[in-house]
Nucleic acid binder design. Structure first.
Lengths: 250, 250
DNA sequence: AGCTTTTAGTGAACATGTTCAACTTTTATT
DNA sequence: AATAAAAGTTGAACATGTTCACTAAAAGCT
């Protein structure tokens, strides 16, 4: 398992990770070589690779850390309208990762190549995805105008997807201080606020459910089989199953 | 300029490119090394680099080629409802790039790191973006239910953005034969068809215009300044200026 | 033709992510 | 303590994208 190593090893590992993240934050991801990390951590190149099979693996850890912190911050979010809570959560997330812009870029970058598991939608990240998805659940259920339970799961899935897109947008946003992203968020809040009353109406609810059914499985760990999303809106309370143990990093 | 080289050089260049694209298609992008390419093309490693400063640059050329072909195919699309034409264009695009899944993945992957110019949203691709954006203009104006001219530009920008997202989705889609993507397209067609009548109504048109104003500049070449998208919906007929000479590859 | 300049082409060398066989230290066992 | 097994650690070596000083061919000029 994971936490059953010698304390010494654990300490070494953490030391290397912290060193790496520090370098990532200060000089950027690409500019930080594994040799830099080893040197700064005062160990050999090989040792870094003992604890992190690939450079990206360190980013993964960062991602998890951010998710954990975000979880806490969101749990403290005051009740309020759904739109406001959603945007606040996103803003908190962006604030948190802003130190690691290029590093997160690497994560998403790797995520784009359908190969590496160390990617936003890769297998290795399944646990974190589940966790973040859960955060959006809290965002929704904690809203003063939360939709009825049957819709919560679907909405969480869609929020998760939108969240991903916004981070993508943010990564690309070259405007000063990423003001364009914040404009987008403002727009999102207003629009979502305006749309909120319609969420319960079938002409809106049904397409949303269908969309969640299509998009959700992309976030799932592997996929067993064929009930993916045949025809209409199957309200079977999933769409992005969370059956993966969260802290199950190998 | 570009086409002012010796015919011999031009030929060599094309030969290398074709060899490379062939290898990309048959064994994947990452699996094809520059040395492979040079060997298969019967030239030295250095020569390949003389014509293509980086490996990604070859992908760029592929992207441009696809854009050109798509342009032609779309121009032959029969008149019909907007939704159908849009989805048909996307499908044509996907069909075209399906041979080069991993290769396109590389393009988008690089595109995610905000560094490299050889990226979907990078400077080097500005010309191609403009071109593709133009394709969506044609998609719109050629529809039997085309919106009024003032909206065409905005809609083209949004279509371009959605197109990017769909390719992203497609790249990640691990379902057999990418059926999930096609489901998404079906959903998109139906939804867009249903929404089409509302496009002219201010409560819909205004937010769309605003969104286009926010998103559009991301696709622009560099950005001059500050009129990016201040407050309300500025219908100033742009949102994604196409003032870049299309074939201006340096 | 003989010279110069520009273009085409080469392959060794470098940087960096990654692997691996060997070495050292720690822990468990007798 | 002596020995064996496991865990920790090392640095050389490899693969691959990229660079560069250099050679070979071609074109231009007198």
């Amino acid at each position: 398992m994971n936490s059953k190593q010698t304390p010494k090893a654990q300490k070494t590992r953490e030391h290397i990770l912290e060193t790496a993240l520090g370098l990532f934050a200060s000089q950027g991801y690409d500019e930080t070589t594994m040799r830099d990390i080893a040197a700064a951590a005062g160990c050999s190149l090989g040792l870094a690779y003992r604890y992190f099979a690939r450079k990206e693996e360190m980013v993964l850890e960062l991602y998890e850390q951010c998710a954990r912190e975000l979880e806490e911050e969101v749990s403290k979010l005051p009740p309020g309208p759904l739109a406001g809570r959603f945007v606040s959560a996103i803003e908190a997330d962006l604030r948190r990762i802003s130190l690691y812009r290029t590093t997160m870029g690497a994560l998403f970058s790797a995520g784009l190549a359908p190969n590496s598991e160390v990617a936003v939608l890769g297998d290795r990240v399944a646990g974190i995805r589940t966790r973040v998805w859960g955060i959006f659940r809290v965002v929704i259920t904690g809203a003063t105008d939360a939709p009825k339970p049957a819709q919560v799961t679907q909405l969480a899935t869609l929020f998760y997807a939108v969240h991903l897109l916004i981070v993508l947008f943010w990564l690309q946003d070259r405007s000063p201080a990423q003001e364009r992203t914040h404009e987008l968020l403002k727009f999102g809040r207003e629009t979502l606020g305006r749309l909120r009353p319609l969420l319960g109406l079938p002409p809106v609810a049904k397409p949303l459910a269908r969309l969640a059914g299509i998009v959700g499985p992309m976030f799932g760990p592997v996929e067993s089989a064929e009930d993916a999303g045949g025809g209409a809106a199957g309200e079977d309370e999933n769409g992005s199953r969370g059956s993966v143990p969260i802290g199950a990093g190998g």
